[in-house]
Amino acid sequence: MTIAAESLETSSPSFDKERPTIAFGTARDYYELLKPRVMQLVIFTALVGMLTSPEPINPILGFASLLAIAVGAGASGCLNMWYDASIDALMDRTSKRPIPAGAVKPGEALAFGMTLSIGSVLFLGLIANWQSAAFLAFTIFFYVVIYTMWLKHWTTQNIVIGGAAGAFPPMIGYMAVTGSVSLESFLYFLLIFVWTPPHFWALALVKSKEYARAGVPMLPVIAGPDATRLQILIYSIALIPVGMAPALISHAGLLYLVVATGFGVVLAYYAFDLYRKREGDEARKAAFRLFGTSILYLFALFGARLIEQLLPLLPWSLMK
């Protein structure tokens, strides 16, 4: 019996074992399959990648390209949920996802994810260029096959290497406009790549028992919380120069540099705080604080870069 059918028995009052299972999913369940919060990050970072290109963008084609990238990212999230439904069911954080909750059957999620994956890649190829479409296809493959099916269940470095999939969107966005990649878009890839471990491990520290129960070899489960705290601190300190790099060796401006430096120092401070507080409620709060600050960090840096790119386009700027 599938996970979905098992959980339907418990979660849905109208489920009857004797009759064929039918889909209970609403549009919202399918939307949840796309990991909307991850999609927000993808849209935001891909948009910055697009706007940093020196070439003009047709707003309609730019919007459509961004949509294709976002849907491609959502599709990979959907395929991730399809593959990991059995372990999602074992963890409180993920047990309410549509498949373990019984709202969407695994086969439906697989079909939904594959359709959106192929559709988004073809759409991006037709409206932008086939280089960016191939890059999007590779990103989906990397996230679903390399990360979800292999790394996640095999190594403590799962989210370090797998983090590359979440870091590609600025490069895809840039490539959708120009057909190539730039140093700046690569630096944004590097920024998200280095940002992912402290972000994810802060959460994994708090949820390590759940990961252990699900058999996922997250760093806190295998190496222990203290080793994880040290790794978080090292990555957070490394993130300061990596965050500043787009301003120091590429085209980001002063606003970006100030925001990257300020938020980089704050993030490293919270990582140090987490390193010091190892027991009880204080340690838990420190982990959540770092997790929340890391999200704010990324939005602040990309937001600053977005403002820098958009300011010259405002009407009063054009009048000068």
Partner: peptide, 19 residues
């Protein structure tokens, strides 16, 4: 086909509209 309950019908209709 199984006879659908009221809730199942509503969910199916909502899904069809969204589609």
């Amino acid at each position: 086909p199984p006879e659908l309950t009221q809730e199942e019908l509503q969910r199916r209709n909502a899904r069809s509209r969204a589609l």
